[in-house]
Structure formats: structure tokens, C-alpha cells
Computed example of a mutant assay.
Amino acid sequence: MNYFTIFASRNDMDDIDGFIMELFAKGHTIKKNGNDYTVQTNSLFNKRKMTIRVSHESTNPAYFETNIPGMIGFYDRIPFADENRKELVLTQISVLNALIAVEAEKALGDEQLRQCMALLSAVGGIGFMQDGTLLDDDGQVIVYPDGASGPANFRPRACTGKVMGPERPSEEGERRKRASIDYIHGRGIPYLDSLPPLPPLAECQWKSQEEIARRAVALLIVIQYACDAAQGGDLAESRDFVLSTLRKFGVEDELTGNERHLLEAEEPSPQEAVNIAWQYEAYWPLIWALRLTDTLDFPDRTCDCNYAIEVVSKCDSFGEFYRSTALRSREEILNEADKIYRLHWACVNSRIHGQEAPAGMNESVVMERRRGLFWMAGCDREDWDHIPMDT
């Protein structure tokens, strides 16, 4: 294999140069010409050379206008074994706007492949193999050319520029960003100053109090089934209980595609079950926004699952639950969304460099809390299953 391509969704490419220079610093000579890099090993024997070409939609729009629709068509024609995974792949491709193309003079060796995978992880993109195999940013296969699913726990990622349009700086957004950075810096956590602010309050697509309450109840109920599926419980009994409880609260229509897929599968995927079980942490900011818990604690531990269940289980109907809620201000919600966005960057940055998340944070808690907060504020205008997790 002489070619390896990384696609990503990024607001800019400012940090790519640093990634390349760092990854190939030892044992290589690097020559840069604009956005092209020639990387050659320094060994006397078995010399290897490859070219890395970096481009972005803003600098090479013609490429993306031509090739992204073609890429969507290619994967749309593949007979995916998992239709949900196909939807995720097509969603990801639709927001791609960055390209890192690696071309080697000889077939890529083991060490060069390792370096390509490290670059893929640093960029947070998807890897495209010559035969059409797609890789997640951890090097795990998303889908094979025949449509079979790989082991990757894949979630699409989209930069703010693709989902919200070109960045429009606002004084409000900058104030919120500075407040978040002050909080993060005060805890000794690294931050990226160039990470853009979230949009101002007036530009978000806010969910109503009732929408948040219905999402919370439906999610909590289906999480119980996900926990049973992940732990190998009696799924027939669990499914009957969950379906009857959804009907009791009148929230059957609030289930997402992923949740329906889990409930309807004859043999639910353990990984899908675990993914939804983790959404206790996305449910928690929903009930915080509904004033059913007082604070959103620092994300270094999991939420109180017993209390999470109790706030719904003590009610006999959705109406009773809804009457117990009161919505926090939009400003409070967006402040927390901005903060968790920057804490997520700190987690990802540490993971890329092989370090533990700073200040004891749990990255899974951070990601799911971000899902709940971004969904309520409508920061990226995506549905619950497809909240982008770019940083």
C-alpha cells in the first residue's frame, strides 16, 4: 500500500504542521514547501520517502466540491450490514473539509503505518485505505469494502464551521469563552485559546422545557434496557418492561434511531448497549437544566444513578414529572456547554499525547455531558445521536 488518506472536519489546519513535525522529528529529514511535506528517513539503508499533502476546503474548494459528493456516492452504494453505521458514515463524509494525503515511494512499512495512525489520531479524522476500508481515529475499522462493520466505536465529528456556518465573533461569545478559560486555568488544566466561542444565545436552536423533559424520561427508560443488555440480563422481560414504561409515560415517539435499533435488535450489540448505558451522563445535565439537581459537579466521577432513576420513577405519569420541573436560564445552560467544550479539548489533547485526562477527568463523562448540553442549546443543530464531538 503506497497511499493513506486522512479526512477530517476542522475549522482550520493551524496545528497540523506541529503534528507532522513532532511525529517525524526523530530519524527523518522534513522539507516543507507550502502545504506539502517531503519526509525521508535518515538511515543509510532501506531509505524511505513519502510526501504529505495538506489541504482544506477554504484553500482548495474545487477538490471538496468534486470529491465529497463522489465519496458519498461510493459509500452509499456499499451494502452495509448495519444501516445505522451507514447513516453515521454518510453523515461524517458530508461534513469533511480537510485532507491529509500520504504518498510513499515504496509500500508503506510498519513504522510508516504506525506514524500514519498516530497522525490520524492527532487530527481526529477518519482514515481511508486504498481498498475503501474506513478507519476511526483510533485505527479501528469502521467499515470494510464489502459493507461488514469493524470493531470501531464510531461517532461522526464536525467542526463548528460546518454545522453553524462561518464563525461570526460576538462579544457575548467571547465573554463566555474567557469565563470558561478562567475556570479551566484556575484548575491547572491546559486549554486551547484558538478554540472558537460557541454562538450567542440568540443564534442557538433551543429545546423547550417539554422537549427536554420528554428526552430525559425516554432516555432514562431505555438506559435501563441498555444496562441489562450490556450485563447479559433477561432481555425479553427487560424489553417488555421498558416498552410498557415508555407507553405509560407517553414518550414512545421520543426514542432516537440508535435507541430504537437497540430495542428492536434480536441480539443487541454489547458495544451499542454500553454506549447508551453511558448516556446516564448525558441525562444528568438534562435533569440539571430542569432543576431536579442543584449543580453540575466537576466531571471526574460518574453521576448518582440511583437518584437519576428516582426523579422519574417516583412519578406515575409524564405530566406529574413535568410539573416537578422548572427550566434554568439559557445563559446558565450555554455557559456550561462552553465550559465542557473546552474541557473536552483538554481530555482529547492529553489522550493524543498518551497522558491521563487532566485533573482526574473522565473523558466519557465529559463527552456525554457535552451531548446533553449541546443538544439542549442546539449548538450544532444535529440530533441526539449525531452530536459532533470535534475539538
Rank of each mutant, 00 (worst) to 15 (best):
S121Q: 14
L99R: 14
H185F: 13
C204F: 00
R187G: 05
A118C: 09
P197L: 02
S170T: 13
S180V: 02
D131L: 05
A98I: 03
G125T: 06
E203K: 13
G165I: 01
A213W: 05
S194K: 11
D193I: 15
V102L: 15
S208C: 04
A152Y: 00
D137T: 08
I223R: 11
A148C: 09
L108T: 05
K177H: 11
R114D: 13
I223P: 07
Q112C: 09
D137Y: 14
E103C: 06
A179V: 08
G139M: 09
G125W: 01
E171V: 12
C116N: 13
I189P: 05
G147T: 05
G132P: 04
V163E: 06
Q112L: 09
Q112K: 09
D110Q: 12
P145Q: 07
Y183G: 02
P197D: 11
Q205C: 10
Y144T: 04
R214T: 00
G161Q: 14
E105G: 06
R175A: 15
G125Y: 02
V141M: 07
P166Q: 13
L96W: 02
A101R: 13
E210R: 14
D136F: 09
Q140M: 12
R187D: 02
T133A: 06
E111P: 09
V217F: 06
H185I: 11
R178H: 11
D193A: 14
P145W: 02
S170A: 05
E172F: 05
L198F: 00
H185M: 14
D131M: 09
M117V: 10
I181F: 13
I184G: 03
A148T: 12
G132C: 10
T133L: 01
R214A: 09
L219G: 14
A101G: 08
A158T: 10
E174I: 12
A101F: 07
A122Y: 04
D131H: 08
L220M: 11
C204G: 11
P145G: 01
F154R: 01
L201G: 03
K177L: 14
I212S: 02
G139I: 03
L120N: 05
Q140G: 10
